[in-house]
């Protein structure tokens, strides 16, 4: 038996303590969501429910339309993921592996406009979609996800590592460019597709400003927009608001935990670039 040094034990205890402190707000959220109505509004605040109940979850789904918001969020995030992937993956591949006139200049231009925050165009985009009759529609909410320059950038970086021999071999065998993309490139890109898909899904799920602007009708609200509206109406109902927060956060948190390897790898690829 090797004896642990006291400093090692202390360090590990410290790390554990910090981690628990950081997770505390999330744990507290779950705990309060299970309390009886009014139980959390006392001093000192209780940390655990005296007799756990699911009544607030039931109430949210039965009386506050939570099922509808959950459905909107799931649908919009899924569609945003599919659309953004089908737009940016082929483009990223073309920038990395296909030769065409003006390729490098075009790519530099795209990287250049990457620094422009999307919020700048929010107002004209709203007016444009109003002209097109897309305000308060799912299509309107999805539109910004079609124009993901970051996605193109991420896919291009990854594509550069595909050996050209692989593509040439397929060309010699007489495959068309479309067939090469489907049969050779897409399978090789599987990890980055998972990563980018995860980014887009989480980004769309967590997005607030754009859905707040474009989805004017309550029946079209996503979870964050609905939760913000609910929290103004039900300031006193701590327990119910916490249940709403759990419903909003749990899906993305679980998704992240399941696919964290992809997430972290992609995040470092996207940001630590000279």
């Amino acid at each position: 038996m090797t004896r642990l040094k006291p400093s090692t034990v202390l360090l590990n205890l410290g790390v554990a303590l910090i981690s628990l402190l950081v997770l505390f707000p999330l744990a507290w959220m779950v705990s309060v969501s299970l309390m009886q109505t009014g139980e959390a509004a006392v001093f000192p605040p209780p940390l655990l429910p005296s007799s756990p109940t699911l009544e607030h979850y039931r109430d949210l789904f039965a009386n506050q339309g939570m099922g509808r918001y959950l459905w909107n969020s799931v649908l919009l995030a899924s569609l945003a993921t599919i659309l953004a992937l089908s737009f940016s993956v082929p483009a990223g591949y073309a920038f990395a592996k296909l030769r065409f006139k003006g390729r490098d200049r075009l790519f530099q231009a795209l990287v250049g406009i990457l620094v422009i925050p999307a919020q700048i165009g929010t107002l004209p985009l709203f007016l444009l979609l109003k002209q097109m009759g897309l305000v308060n529609t799912y299509a309107g909410a999805l539109v910004p996800w079609l124009a993901s320059i970051f996605g193109i950038f991420l896919v291009r970086q990854y594509c550069l590592s595909i050996p050209d021999e692989m593509l040439e071999a397929a060309r010699v065998d007489g495959a068309t460019e479309g067939q090469i993309f489907r049969r050779v490139v897409l399978p090789a890109l599987q990890p980055i597709i998972v990563t980018l898909g995860l980014f887009i899904f989480l980004g769309s799920w967590n997005d607030f400003l754009w859905p707040l602007i474009i989805l004017t009708d309550q029946s079209n609200y996503t979870l964050p927009v609905a939760l913000a509206a609910l929290s103004r109406e039900h300031v006193q109902d701590i327990e119910m608001m916490m249940a709403g927060a759990v419903i909003t956060v749990a899906p993305v948190l679980i998704l992240f935990l399941a696919l964290q390897r992809y997430y972290i790898r992609g995040m470092l690829a996207g940001s630590v670039k000279g």
Binding site: L26, L202, N206, F208, L223, V225, V249, V252, F256, L257
Partner: peptide, 12 residues
């Protein structure tokens, strides 16, 4: 973990 949570929900 807090980074991937929904901003609106954790703000509440």
């Amino acid at each position: 973990a807090p980074y991937v949570t929904t901003l609106v929900a954790t703000a509440v």
